[in-house]
C-alpha cells in the first residue's frame, strides 16, 4: 500500500499542474477545477495497480466524462455566469478579443467547452475527440458549431475571423 501511495503521490506531484490546467479549462473556475481533478485522481487511486503505467490518459478520460456526462455537471454548470454581453473590441485589438473569448468560453455548456478544450488545448482531431467523448464525429461537429454560434453571439468581434473547415466538420 505504501508503494501505491508513493507512486500515486509522485504522479500527482509531477503531472498535477498540467492536469489542473485541463480541469480548469473544462470547469472554468479554480474551485470547480480542483474538485473535478480531485475526483478523477481519487478514481485513479482506487484503480492504481491496474492503470499506474497509463495514469495520465485515464485521469483525462475521467475529467472529460465527469464534466460532460452524468449528473454531476447539472449542479456545476451554472457556476460561472456572465453578467452582460462583452462589447465588440476595436478592430485589430487581438489581445482584447482573446480576453473576451476566454471569458465567453466560461459560459459554454460543459460538452461544448469540452469539445473546444480537446480540439484546441489537447490538439485532438474530430475523430479523436469523438472517440474520447464516446460520441460520433458528427456530434463533435455539431457541438463545435453550437459553441461557435454562442461565442459569436457573445463576442461579435469573432464575426470578422475566418472559420476554417476543420473546426466544424
Amino acid at each position: 500500500m505504501a508503494e501505491v501511495d508513493g507512486e500515486f503521490t509522485a504522479f500527482v506531484n509531477e503531472r498535477g499542474a498540467a492536469l489542473l490546467r485541463v480541469a480548469y479549462a473544462l470547469a472554468g473556475s479554480q474551485h470547480a477545477a480542483e474538485d473535478l481533478l480531485q475526483n478523477a485522481l481519487a478514481k485513479a487511486y482506487v484503480r492504481w495497480p491496474r492503470i499506474h503505467g497509463d495514469a495520465e490518459p485515464y485521469v483525462k478520460r475521467i475529467l472529460y466524462h465527469d464534466q460532460v456526462s452524468g449528473w454531476r455537471r447539472r449542479a456545476r454548470r451554472a457556476e460561472v455566469p456572465v453578467a452582460e454581453l462583452p462589447e465588440r473590441p476595436a478592430a485589430g485589438d487581438d489581445s482584447d478579443l482573446r480576453l473576451l473569448v476566454r471569458d465567453a468560453l466560461r459560459t459554454l455548456p460543459p460538452r461544448q467547452r469540452a469539445v473546444l478544450t480537446l480540439r484546441y488545448l489537447e490538439d485532438l482531431s474530430v475523430e479523436q475527440t469523438a472517440a474520447l467523448l464516446g460520441c460520433r464525429p458528427g456530434t463533435v461537429a455539431s457541438q463545435s458549431t453550437k459553441a461557435l454560434a454562442r461565442l459569436r453571439k457573445l463576442v461579435p468581434g469573432l464575426d470578422g475571423l475566418t472559420n476554417r473547415t476543420e473546426v466544424t466538420r
Binding site: 485541463v22 480541469a23 480548469y24 479549462a25 479554480q30 468560453l105 473546444l116 484546441y120
Partner: peptide, 9 residues
C-alpha cells in the same frame, strides 16, 4: 483563448 483559460489555474 482556450490556453489562456487553462492558464488561469
Amino acid at each position: 483563448a482556450v490556453h489562456d483559460l487553462a492558464d488561469g489555474a
